[in-house]
Write a protein that binds this DNA or RNA. Structure first.
Length: 417
RNA sequence: GGUGGCGUGUCCGAGCGGCCGAAGGAGCACGCCUCGAAAGCGUGUGACGUGGCAACACGUCCGUGGGUUCAAAUCCCACCGCCACCGCCA
């Protein structure tokens, strides 16, 4: 939810943000009107309540003669207050709906839609191979590391078994990511993958993404698509005494992939269940931009450790989630398809997400909304896919990056049996 | 899954349907005392909303949501959570 004070002071800035996103600026004016209507309703009800309270108090002190009249007046006020409160509740609800409809105010993101991203930098050279390149599923099959056929047999399409070196590689990546995060001072967390509706709603995943989310109807719980959800809800409703707070959360992630029929159907690039280590920061809003850069640096560091070439893009306003003010994606080179593939994503949500979740910090003038930021450290399945492809060798073996070797028993390559 | 108990401010903890935003502690902050500290003494110490430049005023909040009443932390109902015991179980 955006800051209503900002909205009142500078509505044009919010309208401009809407235009940059390709969203409707009229939502801003609807919100302004709802805010105004609510304040009117609150004032009216407040005044009535004050009067009712006073009259109610005087019931005790009233003499027997005047008592019936006072009680009569009190009853009448009671009815009026109830009506005023209904009106206030309705105005509150209307404001909330209008409030939720306005996404975060963008901060520095390039205008335009999905195709209008800006490439900020390239790191490493796009690899070339003097042998026919295999894709990750072929390599994974040769290594007996990935089994999508049995994944489909047991669980359906977009599921896979990781076996042998595939399973070990997954654990190694998680351990490397956690080791890096811990060395950087982040608090390691293993988070629940099942959350209550409030957590899902509070983080904004039941809005545009609702169709992507698995729900357990019998238990009123949701499977998280990212540990951003439990990590953000972790401090919901709290006033945080000392910031920054930084977490590295590991969890399984579940996505229905409802809108991606026919897309990335081969291998494990897009599956319903994958493992991920996610970074999450709570900071003073004044420090949010610097924190965003810090998260990006950690993401780059991890890919550098894996010896993967990549590029960093500044995602355009129209392609941001509703909570994000700015987002950087890192895309790694996928040799089999000769294209860039999104491996990580880091968003600065400023105080937008925190306001909805009631996450506050001690500010100059008392508690105020904190800023939250998230960033992928390692989306394991996809990273395995890219790793196998980039580091493949002519004979079907795969080079193991130096940093990963200690987590794979010192092995320097993976070979078909 | 069953039975019982409990949810009050940063924490502990009291609270007769009106005089309770809430006793009393602790903690914390500031001041006095001290060479300095501890102890002691004194003062202060929630959030949110609306109006106001501000001091401040009014309103809301005693797990959440309903209900009864002129009036609810206090009575009733539902839900959520916590604790204990039993059952089951990786």
């Amino acid at each position: 939810m955006i800051d209503l004070k900002l909205l009142r002071d500078d509505p044009e800035r919010v309208r401009a943000s809407q235009r940059a996103r390709g969203d409707d600026p009229a939502l801003v004016d609807a919100l302004l009107a709802a805010d105004e209507a609510r304040r009117t309703a609150v004032s009216y009800a407040d005044n009535l309540r004050a009067e009712q309270k006073a009259v109610s108090q005087s019931v005790r002190g009233a003499s027997p003669e005047e008592r019936p009249a006072v009680l009569e007046r009190a009853k009448q006020l009671s009815t009026e207050v109830k009506e005023a409160e209904v009106a206030q509740t309705e105005a509150d609800a209307a404001l909330r709906v209008a409030h939720l409809a306005v996404p975060n105010v963008i901060a520095g993101a390039p205008p335009g839609g999905e195709a209008d991203f800006v490439v900020l930098e390239h790191v490493g050279d796009v690899p070339s191979y003097d042998f026919p390149v295999r894709d990750h599923l072929d390599i994974g099959t040769l290594l007996s590391a990935i089994d999508t056929e049995r994944g489909a047999k047991v669980s359906g399409s977009r599921f896979a078994f990781l076996t042998g070196d595939g399973a070990l590689l997954e654990l190694a990546l998680i351990n490397l990511a956690m080791a890096q995060a811990t060395a950087a001072g982040l608090i390691p967390v293993i988070a629940p993958a099942l959350v209550r509706p409030e957590a899902m709603e509070g983080t904004g995943f039941l809005g545009a993404h609702a169709a992507e989310v698995y729900k357990l109807e019998n238990d009123d719980l949701y499977l998280v698509g990212t540990s951003e959800v439990p990590l953000a809800a972790y401090h919901s409703g709290e006033v945080l005494e000392k910031l920054p707070l930084r977490y590295a959360g590991y969890s399984s992630c579940f996505r229905r992939e409802a809108g991606s029929h026919g897309k990335d159907t081969r291998g494990i690039i897009r599956v319903h269940q994958f493992e991920k280590v996610e970074m999450f920061s709570y900071v003073d809003p004044a420090a949010a931009e610097a924190e965003h850069q810090r998260l990006l640096e950690w993401e780059k560091q991890f890919l550098t450790l894996l010896e993967l070439p990549y590029r960093v893009i500044d995602v355009a306003a129209g392609d941001l989630g509703s909570s994000a003010a700015r987002k950087f994606d890192i895309e790694a080179w996928l040799p089999s398809q000769e294209r860039w593939l999104e491996l990580t994503s880091t968003s600065n949500c400023t105080d937008f997400q925190a306001r909805r979740l009631g996450i506050r910090m001690r500010g100059e003038k008392g508690p105020q909304a904190a800023a939250t930021l998230n960033g992928t450290l390692c989306a394991v399945g996809r990273t395995i896919a890219v790793l196998l492809e980039v580091h493949q060798q002519a004979d079907g073996s795969v080079h193991v990056p130096k940093a990963l070797q200690p987590f794979l028993g010192g092995r320097t390559e993976l070979r078909p049996a």
